[in-house]
Simulated scan of single mutants.
Amino acid sequence: MKQDSVVTIHADEQSRQTAEIMRRFNDVFQHRDPAALAELVADDCVIENTVPAPDGARHAGKDACVGLWSAIATQAGTSFDLEETFVAGERATIRWRYFMADGNSIRGVNLMRVADGRIVEAMGYVKG
């Protein structure tokens, strides 16, 4: 059963801006529409994702990050449930559950950082 996502935001302007960017980022995956990524991702963005295990892979630069997230958002038969987004200043933690096309699922978190209104860092971790 899908639960409503919880969003916790510290009450300062930077946190509100980061929360809005995270809302738009999460919408990409909820609506399976990566169109917004180009304006959300910084030129110098870096992703350290969860595969291949155990350390994942590093993706650097806007094109690489937008490409990776676009592929994840549009992968047939998959979906994300957002469990919680916590925002404090330029940092956000997104707790999620990813349902794969084969029916299995994994839980994980993304540790995100925003600078100058764009995502500059995303570190992904999953439960083993």
Rank of each mutant, 00 (worst) to 15 (best):
V28E: 02
F29N: 02
F29A: 03
H31M: 05
H31R: 13
H31I: 00
R32E: 06
R32A: 13
D33A: 11
D33Q: 10
D33C: 05
D33I: 02
P34N: 11
P34L: 10
A35T: 12
A35Y: 01
A36Y: 01
A38S: 11
V41T: 13
D43M: 00
D43L: 01
D44N: 14
V46Y: 00
V46N: 02
I47L: 14
I47C: 03
N49K: 01
T50R: 02
T50F: 09
V51D: 06
A53M: 11
G56I: 06
R58A: 06
H59I: 14
A60P: 00
G61D: 10
K62Q: 15
K62A: 12
D63N: 10
D63Y: 00
A64M: 10
C65W: 01
C65F: 04
C65M: 08
V66S: 05
V66R: 04
G67Y: 11
L68H: 12
W69E: 03
S70R: 07
I72T: 14
A73R: 06
T74W: 07
Q75L: 14
Q75K: 15
Q75F: 12
G77P: 10
G77Y: 10
G77C: 12
S79Q: 14
F80E: 03
L82R: 04
L82A: 04
E83A: 06
E84W: 00
V87Y: 02
V87G: 03
V87C: 06
A88E: 12
A88Y: 02
G89R: 09
G89F: 06
E90K: 13
E90N: 14
E90S: 15
R91S: 11
T93I: 15
T93R: 08
I94M: 10
W96A: 02
W96R: 07
R97S: 09
R97F: 05
R97G: 05
R97E: 07
F99H: 15
A101T: 10
G103M: 07
G103Q: 08
G103C: 08
S105K: 07
R107N: 14
G108E: 05
G108Q: 09
V109F: 07
V109K: 03
V109P: 00
N110C: 05
L111W: 03
L111M: 12
M112D: 13
M112T: 04
R113D: 04
V114M: 11
V114W: 01
A115V: 10
D116F: 02
D116A: 15
G117K: 08
R118Q: 15
I119S: 02
I119G: 05
V120A: 08
V120N: 07
E121M: 12
A122Y: 02
A122Q: 12
A122M: 14
M123R: 14
M123T: 11
G124C: 10
Y125A: 14
